[in-house]
């Protein structure tokens, strides 16, 4: 009976992590579609991402209620809730960014498209790497540090790429208006922020894993 309820909670957590994974994929596709002017696909991605975000919110609340109602892991549940909140932030940010692309329609010069795609992929890779790390925390905390190493690596790469893009915008593109430069800088920052949130998740996970191993 008790394990039945526990299995349900485990299933909810797995679903949540899958939801995060799916949302990140949608974000990646969405940015790509925007950059290549596939408006129809881009709108579709936005819609799906919004649904995914709603679902993840519901799942997070359900997990929270289950953990508290069944008094599961009183010592760890605070940490676990924080972890889920931080991971939910990843989806929120992805959704917000895609909406910003839709509303503000930034003009991205052709020579920057490949850079933006690379930045998006690296930033999303950092975020995606938190999922196996989180799964590892639940099943095998000893290996968490190994998994979060990838997050740190991708985050650093994303920072580097964002810097390169910013340098290109401000130093090598005199034809762009200052307002356009600022606009592009903000979008670089928004995409980069996803990897920063992933880094926060990784930091939290590393502490949580240590707590579980002491």
């Amino acid at each position: 009976m008790l394990l039945k309820k526990t299995n349900k909670s485990i299933e909810l957590i797995d679903n949540f992590l899958n939801c995060v994974d799916q949302s990140l994929l949608l974000f990646k596709e969405g940015v790509k579609n925007y950059l290549y002017n596939n408006t129809e696909n881009f709108n579709n991605d936005i819609l799906q991402l919004a649904n995914s975000e709603k679902e993840s919110d519901n799942l997070r609340r359900e997990i929270e209620t289950t953990l508290f109602l069944q008094s599961l892991m009183p010592q760890l549940r605070g940490d676990i809730m924080r972890l889920l909140e931080e991971m939910d932030n990843l989806i929120d940010q992805a959704k917000k960014n895609l909406f910003q692309f839709e509303v503000e329609t930034p003009h991205i010069p052709a020579e920057l498209i490949s850079d933006f795609i690379r930045l998006t992929q690296t930033s999303v890779s950092a975020a995606e790497s938190t999922i196996p790390a989180a799964k590892s925390y639940f099943n095998d905390p000893v290996n968490v540090s190994e998994k979060i190493h990838r997050v740190y690596f991708y985050e650093k790469e994303a920072d580097l790429m964002a810097d390169i893009i910013r340098r290109k915008i401000f130093k090598e593109m005199p034809n762009l208006k200052l307002s356009e430069k600022f606009h592009l800088r903000y979008f670089t920052l928004h995409i980069e922020n996803i990897s920063d949130t992933a880094e926060k998740v990784a930091d939290l996970l590393s502490i949580m894993a240590i707590k579980r191993m002491i």
Binding site: L3, S9, F138, N139, R212
Partner: peptide, 12 residues
């Protein structure tokens, strides 16, 4: 550690 059991199951 060797069982790699889910933390929720382990706690229960």
């Amino acid at each position: 550690r060797s069982s790699r059991m889910h933390v929720l199951k382990k706690e229960s």
